[in-house]
């Protein structure tokens, strides 16, 4: 794929009756990255993903998927892994049987099938549950199995609609490590979520609001765009004096209840600040993406 965009959308629109769900949306997802599409419930994330795989037809705009116009996307379905919000599984089949079914659909050869199923069940930590009926699994396990089924055919482009809902934090980290590895291999991973924390783990983030992209970029870029900076909080013996000193050196300073707060342009400045003053205690507060998005969407 190289540098070509995995997905590019230009002026994409879609409405259901009078409800405008995608409103002149522009979005570029380079290949080989993990991309997080973030947005509150009802903002149109699922609609966008369904438009990518042509489960619904756009009203207007242009979209390319893996270099092809979206109207031809059915010819590259074998390169796409799509995990729906419904977690498409057969509850009356076992974990193993569900995996075998999807492996068969994508025509995996016997040997390959056995290996992939083994590998993926290990990744989602379901190896010892392979004989259980999917319907008897807990919500989180069901979710994990659905993810494993989506990955079975090693797709170039992964579209995961809220894949981590109900998955515990430890396993969530395993997922993210796996996604990073896939991106490292040149695969593209698009994930939707309405949880901010998730987004910080992605290489790129897009924030969607009311069918538009309110902001997109790397998490750092988004923070910068919103004008948010890390804040160093310093507990000093003589706060007033030291604050004046730092101000004189050109730092942005606030004093809050005797604690001096320095807004940092970059983390490298911490060293210089510590050369100028000697705090009794200190703490670094990273800006939250949540705050950044809130600002950006207010500005928009």
């Amino acid at each position: 794929m190289g540098t070509q965009a995995a997905i590019s959308a230009r002026g994409v629109t879609k409405s259901f009756g009078r409800l405008q769900v995608l409103d002149n949306l522009d979005l570029d997802i380079p290949s080989g990255v993990t991309y997080c599409l973030l947005g509150p419930n009802g903002s149109g994330k699922t609609t966008f993903i369904r438009a990518i795989v042509r489960l619904l037809r756009l009203d207007g705009g242009e979209m390319k998927v893996l270099g092809r116009p979206v109207s031809e996307v059915n010819e590259i379905y074998s390169q796409i892994g799509y995990m729906t919000q419904h977690k498409a599984l057969y509850p009356d089949l076992t974990v193993q049987e569900n995996m075998e079914f999807y492996a068969g659909l994508y025509g995996l050869a016997k040997q390959k099938r056995v290996e992939r199923i083994e590998e993926l069940l290990r990744m989602v930590d379901l190896l010892e549950h392979r004989g259980r009926l999917a319907g008897a699994l807990s919500g989180g396990m069901y979710q994990r199995l659905s993810l494993a089924c989506t990955l079975i055919h090693e797709p170039e482009l992964l579209l995961l609609d809220e894949p981590t809902v109900g998955v515990d934090p430890r396993l969530r980290q395993t997922f993210w490590d796996y996604f990073d590895r896939l991106a490292g291999e040149g695969k593209t991973v698009l994930i939707t979520t309405h949880i901010m924390d998730e987004a910080e783990k992605c290489q790129r983030v897009g924030y969607m609001r009311a069918g538009r992209m309110a902001a997109q970029g790397s998490p750092e870029e988004i923070l910068r765009l919103a004008g948010l900076k890390p804040v160093l909080r310093l507990w000093l013996a003589e706060p007033e004096k030291d604050a004046a000193l730092l101000r004189a050196e050109g730092y942005e300073i606030d004093i809050d209840d005797g604690v001096v707060q320095v807004r940092l342009e970059s983390h490298a400045l911490i060293k210089e600040i510590l050369a100028a003053v000697s705090p009794l205690d200190m703490r670094l507060a990273e800006p939250r993406l949540e705050e950044a998005f809130l600002r950006l969407s207010e500005a928009a």
Partner: peptide
């Protein structure tokens, strides 16, 4: 339909 498996089929070589 209700399990979402149909939707997944639609996006597969089947």
């Amino acid at each position: 339909r209700s399990q979402g498996t149909l939707e997944k089929f639609m996006v597969s070589p089947l």
